[in-house]
Design a protein around this nucleic acid. Structure first.
Lengths: 116, 116
DNA sequence: CATGAATAAAACGGAGCCGAAACGGTTTCC
DNA sequence: GGAAACCGTTTCGGCTCCGTTTTATTCATG
């Protein structure tokens, strides 16, 4: 069973969520940063810089910098892979899980208010 | 009738759309710019700089700059209000309508692919 | 070992956005 | 008319992000 969503509802939903994000005081992430964060929290681990760069089709420095900023916000954490110490494994944090959860709640709340 | 969307579906939807936007070649707009654009195309006119600034709870220069960049992309156009020449009325364009329409199609397509 | 491959991070220069303040043009109200 | 208020824009310094290139560390291979 798929989610039934008409174009006008989809656009209205995006507007409402965007408005909530712009107005809110949550740390505003770039579109790329959000994509990285959601991928880390939705796709199965392990996550590496290289893997994320390939999945998003961006360069590795983009991922490194995104992890820098989100790491400063404590939304993710980095650890060296003990098996292959060249790799860095990105792990989830409590704060990050809370952030993602809250974001999902906003989307759900706004979708419940859609007209028609 | 409201749209039924569970948190995991909402997050997955946002991830898929974000990934599509990051990977895509469409001009990438800021979260604020997207909020401005959707408001212009979804809410009833007339739209003014001041009105948009109040609705998004941001300063007027933010709106002016967003209109600068989106105007350069021909997604919106500006015209002096003939009744009160202090005001600037923001109007829609064919390119902007097409951009919004395509974005809505992406959301609908991704929502149709959601699991569960 | 020693050389080369692979990985993430750091360095560098360029571009865009931000907030705050100042600026011109327009209207309103005595 | 003239002062004040309003509206959108511009300017300024600062910050962040981007893409590319360079560096440092670690692994694989002969």
């Amino acid at each position: 069973m798929s989610v039934q969503l008409r174009p006008s509802q989809a656009l209205r939903l995006w507007q409402q969520v965007s408005l909530a994000e712009v107005r809110g005081k949550a740390p505003d992430l770039t579109e790329r940063q959000l994509a990285v964060l959601l991928t880390i929290y939705l796709d199965p681990p392990p996550h590496t810089v290289r893997g994320l760069a390939e999945k998003l089709d961006v360069s590795k420095p983009v991922i490194t910098r995104a992890l820098d900023t989100m790491g400063a916000l404590k939304l993710v954490s980095r650890h060296r892979d003990p098996n292959d110490r060249r790799n860095v494994l990105i792990k989830r944090t409590v704060e990050g899980a809370l952030f993602v959860e809250r974001f999902g709640d906003v989307v759900v709340a706004k979708s419940a208010e859609l007209p028609l």
